[in-house]
Write a protein that binds this DNA or RNA. Structure first.
Lengths: 200, 200
DNA sequence: CCTTTCGCGTACCATTGGTATGCGAAACTG
DNA sequence: CAGTTTCGCATACCAATGGTACGCGAAAGG
């Protein structure tokens, strides 16, 4: 790691571009923001931008990765605070609903992400940050006999999709009890998967 | 309704633009296809296009509506073939997984839709075509005591999101048993919501 | 048959993502 | 410390795209 004045300024410029890109992408969507606006907000020019990123898409990829890592860390922290593996799953899922409540997370990670990068790449990035934790938690619970033995992949995607859509809906819903109701419904769905729930 | 040569040609041109738009949007995504390509494929010019649609976005809105109505009709038909309300729900949900398997449905309706139109408008259109059926089916089952009494909105979004994500995953998954496994997991989740499942 | 309507083609414009090139200061080198 | 290289960045420019203004020619209406 270099520590000269040059390397420092370089990193500062890169961080500013990522920060302003995140702010603008969240506010106006990927297609609604031009490079001119981004570089102006960052106080640089297009020449500087293309020195740091190959394309507008590359900047979005960087922003999305940062958002996903932030959400993943928040969820993982909440889950790790629980002792019981089952409670880790429930807490992690419920935390996800609130961690993705911020508008910038919504638009970048849940709405524009799949369309801009393509679903496959978006899925791969999500897998690396948060979905992997979900799958691992499910596997542990299956191995320990808490959950009925079954393939984890379908379950992971069903739950992941359910939480994503619920988070988007909650952001625009006016009802005060919607969050609690959703948490209740989600908890009920998770509980239903248990081997001792009488289903299966 | 006029029936002259002129009105007929007009409708023909409009249908061709919608058809080619759907084909190209599905193949390359909304941002990946230009108006020039669309009008060339339809055998007309941009002048004709803007005589029928206000913008590229308006064409996409028309295409998306058509796709959603097709999926909604397919799901509703399968559900209506069942007598028992509970079986209508299960059959409808399972049919959704196969009805959205076509690549054009995936990209237009599930990936690009929310990003291009914005999540709110996309949700409103989805509500009008398929999600409304789901909500109605859930309400019937709650009223008849099959499902535990609970708010339907959170449940609708959780299930809708789960099915959307599962459909996208299934399209790219290589495993032969993935579809069956997903249907099993989805059925298990639905069954868990029943008032007599011991949960809640 | 003469006028009006209108579906559509042609020519054009503004903006956007992306590139080629030059400059000036920081970082090596003797 | 002078000379040279490196490199972060700015300027000027290009091709393509969504969108508009306007004109033509055939069908619709009297």
């Amino acid at each position: 790691m270099k520590h000269g004045v040059r390397a420092e300024q370089r990193e500062q410029t890169r961080r500013t571009l990522l920060a302003e890109g995140r702010r603008l992408f969240a506010a106006k969507g990927y297609a609604g923001v031009g490079l001119a606006e981004i570089v102006a907000a960052a106080g640089v020019t297009k020449g500087a931008f293309y020195h740091h990123f190959d394309s507008k898409l590359a900047l979005f990829r960087g922003v999305l990765t940062a958002v996903q890592e932030q959400v993943g860390a928040e969820v993982a922290a909440a889950a790790d605070a629980e002792k019981d593996p089952w409670q880790q799953l429930v807490t992690g899922c419920l935390t996800f609903l609130t961690a993705t409540a911020a508008p910038d997370v919504q638009r970048v990670m849940l709405v524009d992400g799949p369309a801009v990068l393509g679903w496959a790449e978006w899925r791969a990035l999500d897998e690396a940050s948060s979905a992997r934790h979900l799958a691992e938690a499910l596997e542990v619970l299956i191995e320990s006999g808490v959950l009925a033995r079954q393939p984890v992949a379908p379950l992971t995607h069903l739950l992941s999709g359910a939480m994503n859509e619920a988070a988007l809906w909650l952001a625009g819903s006016a009802g005060d009890s919607d969050l609690d109701d959703t948490k209740t419904a989600l908890t009920r769905m998770l509980t239903a998967l248990r081997a001792d729930s009488g289903v299966g």
